[in-house]
Amino acid sequence: MHIDELIHKKSGEQVVFFLRRHIIVFIGGMLLIIFMMFIPFGAYWLINANWPQLLNDTLIGPIMKLVASAYYFWVWLFLFSNFIDYYLDAWIVTNDRILNVEQSGLFNRTVSELDLINIQDVTSEVHGVLPFLFGYGDVFVQTAAEKSRFVFEQVPQPEEIRKRLLMLVEEEQKNLRSVNRRAEE
């Protein structure tokens, strides 16, 4: 994803993290969809074993073939839409702010921005066997802004992200204090 299309970087601003959900989340969804592609074969085997005359029927045979064809097209599209949903969700952390880009379906896209200085607390959570094994989880960012909480969902190494975010917030607060001190002088 082109970062420059999402944010206008200020002078001195650097991208620290560019995050997406852990790939295993997408693979899990993909495996389910691949399983769905085997359902027509199972249905064919079942019908062939119990009601073979249906497959050769003048009306029902063509209907089943049309339904199977349409089903495969739509399951394939569902797989691609799943990828789009995964790929267009991103969290960008710079040394100045956090950007939350969320794609929900085809026609819903939300982009939220939060300055690091407004961050009050950062919490990381890993719940479940798969998140524990593959090292992914959620990072909750508590803010003093209008949107009180940002969530980085199912991101890899959430503890590391939490530590780095807190370090960035501390640096930003230090910079602000020194700027204020210089302004007072």
Binding site: H2, W74, L77, S81, I84, Q103, L106
Partner: peptide, 25 residues
């Protein structure tokens, strides 16, 4: 059947458009 395929094509094009539009090329 053809209506379903037409809708599939429209949504497929929209998906690809989204990738290009939001710079995920």
């Amino acid at each position: 059947y053809l209506l379903a395929i037409l809708l599939f094509l429209v949504l497929a094009v929209l998906n690809v458009y989204h990738l290009i539009r939001y710079g995920a090329t």
